[in-house]
Design a protein around this nucleic acid. Structure first.
Lengths: 336, 336
DNA sequence: CTGAAAGCGCTAACAT
DNA sequence: ATGTTAGCGCTTTCAG
């Protein structure tokens, strides 16, 4: 194997403990000794064996970020922020893919990786409040998104109702009256879709526009293909919508695709808006109006909360609510 | 702490070794004993402490996939495949972001994470052949992409010259004569861009089309914004191109954006093709013609090669060359 | 300020 | 088929 503390201790003519203290700085070390040790470390190219350290400390320095889809740009962008933040705090972040499967989310929740990671950031979509409440594992947990709410864990999520209301109000202000919502939850699960629909309805109510259930289209998943199919369905209606709010940017982009293919003008015939502000929407044709959550804040807060808990911070669970803002682009803009 | 082997051993009235063998199956265990041990494991909810196992075995079971950009869909899709493959082989895959920085690539190459990971899959873009040859670390290494070639390590990469040649030949076959290349390397580094330019030139030569250096546009990076700017430049030329091959799909999508904004017709006025086959290009407007590398094969081969080396496979370095194929979509299709 | 030594939980070599 | 035990490399008491 490689160079160990013992090698350094021998070379520098000191004890193991002293070398350890030079490395970790837990106790003061005399200047002369420190230099001798440091030289030995440099000469031999010592780096601590993390497995041994972890075994001894009972912690691994790893945390996991579990998301329903790795290839979803929203989560990729979030992961990017979270990885940097974790590194800055001395932790390594591991990505987990739950594939939006109940079993996977549950397993993680109950400590599937308990010996590998010190804590978990989970974006739950397939499990509900009861399952989180029934959790028995003690590993620190931070939830992101509004998939599960009102549980005794730290949580980081924007106000989805408000975000959705804002986007819908924008469509209303544009003079749209038949506003569809694409991306309702298939079964009845998927809490965050419910919240976004609630915001949508609130904005409709506020504008005195009657709610038409026929304009709310359920989708299996929340990808581009789902938006594409849902839009297809909407265009086949007797009275197609004049605007669409999609569950997220990805489904919105799918909708744009169908509209382009059908020859419908966007925004002239149909205005389209999404939620997430993924970079793809800044380059789509037309560019996509969206609600931008503060992804930086989400990623950083989630990691910070988790690390605080790992390092022993007590206190009641916190709910961090990062901000969001509407970004108007071509898909709801004036006619070109 | 949690439940340990010792607890199980006591509960089941057997030795540590026997429990270990039930868990790992290294030695046969009597059926009756096995059942007693298994019951104890289930009742106490035992899971092995990985740090201890790693310390003892001298391996961590972690491997890293280091890419220049986490938010690039190509790498996200690759990571998705690789994570699954690694899990299937009993390893956990860690994502590392080099941000295309020389220092980061070099550090990883030289064993920055040596005690955390058993092996590294690296997609080098900022370092060159010499730096890889000068490597002193002994940790197993697999390179992906053609950023560095002809080095004594396993490598997984498609034939970039051929891929690019194929795409260019397709544009030629469409009757295009002024074909631009967007995404040349800025400095002179970035080997894979060179290879793609070589393929582009070969196809031009084969068709008897003179090479026009003014149609090769360097870009800082290889993202959407870079394609957008490069296309802007091309449209400002006295004789703008009638086709564009982009370094990758992302830059191609940036080019599409500029073309849409300028009112140019795609493919009528300008045909556009990319390389990578990211899902985004299947939904862009117009949809993007691209060269699709076998990402599944790339991700799986890279992980398998690495794991083989970690587990002691010797032999000369292998070069795996997954296949690719052209996918014709609207951006080079007939006029709508 | 420094040293000695216990022990984290596991695997594997050696015994029975 | 099962048991005993050394030791992986580190941190952290307890002594000095």
């Amino acid at each position: 194997m490689g160079v160990s503390l013992k090698d350094i201790a021998e070379r520098a003519g000191v004890s193991l403990a002293t070398v350890s203290n030079v490395v970790n700085g837990y106790r003061p070390v005399g200047e002369v000794t420190r230099q001798r040790v440091q030289r030995a470390i440099d000469e031999l190219g010592y780096t601590p064996n993390l497995s041994a350290r972890h075994l001894r400390r009972g912690r691994t320095g790893l945390i996991a970020l579990a998301v329903p889809e790795l290839t979803n740009p929203y989560f990729a962008e979030l992961a990017d922020v979270a990885i940097r933040e974790a590194a800055g705090l001395g932790y390594t972040l591991l990505m987990e893919n739950t594939a939006a499967e109940r079993g996977a989310e549950l397993a993680l929740l109950e400590g599937a990786q308990r010996h590998l990671i010190d804590g978990l950031i989970l974006s739950p979509v397939a499990i509900g409040r009861e399952e989180v409440l029934a959790r028995r594992a003690r590993m620190p947990l931070v939830l992101i998104g509004e998939g599960v709410y009102d549980v005794p864990y730290d949580r980081v999520a924007i106000d989805n109702v408000a975000a959705s209301r804002t986007a819908t109000a924008h469509l209303v202000a544009l003079g749209r009256r038949r506003i569809a919502f694409v991306g309702a939850p298939p079964g009845g699960d998927r809490q965050s879709a419910h919240l976004r629909i609630r915001g949508y309805r609130e904005a409709l109510d506020a504008a005195g526009i009657p709610f038409d259930p026929g304009l709310v289209v359920p989708t299996e998943q929340f990808g581009r293909a789902d938006g594409e199919h849902a839009m297809h369905h909407l265009l086949s209606l007797d009275h197609p919508p004049d605007a669409v709010l999609a569950y997220n940017d990805l489904t919105a982009i799918g909708a744009l695709r169908t509209l382009a293919r059908s020859g419908a003008g966007v925004p002239d015939d149909v205005a389209v808006a999404g939620i997430d502000d993924i970079e793809e929407g800044r380059f789509s044709n037309p560019t996509l109006t969206t609600v931008a959550p503060d992804k930086r804040a989400i990623g950083r807060s989630a990691v910070r909360r988790l690390v605080s808990r790992i390092e022993g911070e007590g206190g009641p669970p916190m709910h961090v609510q990062p901000s969001f803002h509407l970004i108007e682009r071509e898909s709801t803009g004036p006619a070109r």
